[in-house]
Design a protein around this nucleic acid. Sequence first.
DNA 1: AGCACGCCGACT
DNA 2: GTCGGCGTGCTC
Length: 796
Amino acid sequence: MKIAEVFLNQTNKRIDHAYDYRVPVHLESVTQEGIRVVVQFGIGNRRVEAFITKIKETTDYSGKIKEIIENIDMEPVLNREQIELCLWMKTVYCSLFYEALSYFTMAVQIKQEIDYYRNYEKLDLDLKQNWFIEHYFDNANEVLPLKKVKPEDRIILAELIKKKAVYSKKSWKKISDPESRKKSIQSSYHLTAMGREALKQDKKFGKKQCELMEYLLRSDMKGEDLKIITAQYKKSLEPLIKKGYVCVNKTASQEQPLNLSAAGYEHQSVILTHNEQRSYNQYQALTKQTSGVFFHVFDAVSKYRLFFKAIEDQLKANRSSVVIFPEINMTFQRMEMFYKYFGNKVGVFHGQLSPKQRTELYLRIRSGEIKVIIGVRSAVFLPYVNLGLIIIDDEHDSSHNSISMPQFHITDIAKKASEIMGAFYIIADNIPRVATWYRIEKKELAVIQIGEEPRFRHAIEIIDMQKEMHQGNMGILSRTLLRYLQSGIEQKRMSVLFINNLGYANSILCRKCGHVEKCPHCGVSLKYLNHDHSLLCHYCGYKKAVPVLCSECGSDKVRHMGYGIDQLEEYLKKVFSGVRIATVQGNMKRSDIKKINKSIASGEFDILIGTQVINKHFNLSNISVAAAVLIDRDLNQGNYQASENVYQMYSRFFAKAMDNKTKGVIQTNEPENDTIYSIKNESFLEFYRSEIHYRQLMHYPPTVKMISLSVFHKKESEAENDSVRLYVSIKEELKAFGMGQAVYKPVRIGVTRGGNITYQIVIKTAKQSVFQNLMSKIIRLGIIEALKSKVSIQIN
DNA sequence: AGCACGCCGACT
DNA sequence: GTCGGCGTGCTC
């Protein structure tokens, strides 16, 4: 008799453990580890989706064992190594099994469907209920899918289920079956010559029609894109198509082969320079001794060549490789290179793939046809055959952190995955994370320097804005910076201003008593809106006029605090008349980025103002002055990683924007800050030493493990109560380990965008195993489940 | 006694 | 989540 160990697709942490089910004889041939099945669960024997993690001959469970009802998959969706990794993630991140599993099944998703059947016994039903039966269950239809029930009739359906006149049955279907290739047609719209002429002549069009045509004038658009103008774009567009002003091009979009660009490429072999070869020899030696290495990158070109060489060697040994980039939409040029070297063995995995494309890629990886994958963090969970190498590029990038449960950092997953699969991992970055360098210092991770560290130092000045203010300059920019900008404008060389704050101003504060206007409901500082001179709460929408006098001390010295991009732009236009300014911020379209880059190259701007997006997508050269306008706000983010973020962000900015002729400026109210000094000195090691000292002192990661439990509830009192309850339980349990002081009292964090009050409990410990014991006990006792609030766990 | 309701705990 | 058990308390 075969027994299957399964985990159920359900959301209760307390019962999220392995259950034994008997494999019925007729399913023995298809039932294996790694497939999804349907089982009966609970007193009502309801049908529940489950995942088989293990097949065994006997069971330790003394109670009655039920049978598996049916299988959903024909073949395993996870291999043995992936199951192990998934189970490890569940324990380490205290997540549900199915939360961890969801990362592995992204390319082979199934969806639940509910069908209803009627009970033919006679029951007393009211008029409406009888009507429902008559209407939906005519004699031909025994099965009623939920989809067919109109939303307004679902209340009646619920009544019928309660009366047991109707019962439901769940089933699961594959979302994308690559076997059933339906051609999906995508329309793109094009403004005809006639349309262009008509637009020029200012013929009479509707308001929306004009907007649509203006939009199409720039380039052809898909229906999706036009939705930005109006959701009902078709209504306005249809008459235009009829008159011949706009034409439609229909293409079968999904039918494109996955790796189109691979066509026509011959496999090239990688040729290294002398220095690269030396680094590669070091790497090869390390692959025999350890399981991972950090590439400290000073030369990006060499880095890529080493990646290619390493992948090439993996292919020679018939092993697969995966390269993880922070985001894929900006890496098309890089992909080109991969195709050049590895042709049709390359696959690209990212969020914009359709379900069908994902499944196709998944199957081709599983079959071993694709051996080189470039992708975003979730690509690490694909079913590789014989994985030999995991590469993580730009490791500092925050996109490598997952935001949904379980919250992991890709490096931790790569480390464990390589351990399970016998692969090697490379972490590459030009400025390392503090956590990574800590491992290097502790000799847990080897390091290889790629390229030469540049010897010259840029000239970066720190300017004390307090002093500036005392000397009578109340403006946003210091006199030094203004002078530099002026000379840049005269020399027709562009300047770049880095400001990490959108909008006009952050909030307003009283210069006399320091009082900041806050939201009476949420306690967060109110954001200043320029257009109607009011204050707005980000979270609850509370709005009020800016007070003339300080509501605390009555002084009239109420001022803006924190300048935003908009205010800086306004200010610059006032100071330099006729100045040509470009602003870049937030999520920009690829086309917009291209356009701005083109304008920059042709010298159309005097000053570029931007947030951290400057670091990513813009080409800067021959810059007159590169300045950090407002560094303090970033330094005072209020989390322990603030300094690290600031160091990463601003070092990258100066490294990117400056050459040896560029002047660098950092404006600050805190000129003695160590982080600012390290940015000025461009010394990572200097920064690292002071930062690690601080973290050791304060017991922050990476010197200790830090576990944060966030408690969310819509009601303030519930969130507070629950967080205290959880805190007390954790403290009690920790006392058993003699570690009662490792947990800190709940702290009110604030309000989430969804309006949930958040409290946070922090546990700091040197030993993560203690935490895992603790959590499994807390979960067994059902303490979290007993709370009304939602709890999420982050581990650093 | 009969029931309605809400809480609790088990679920292989 | 979802079901039944069980205790409480209300009504007849």
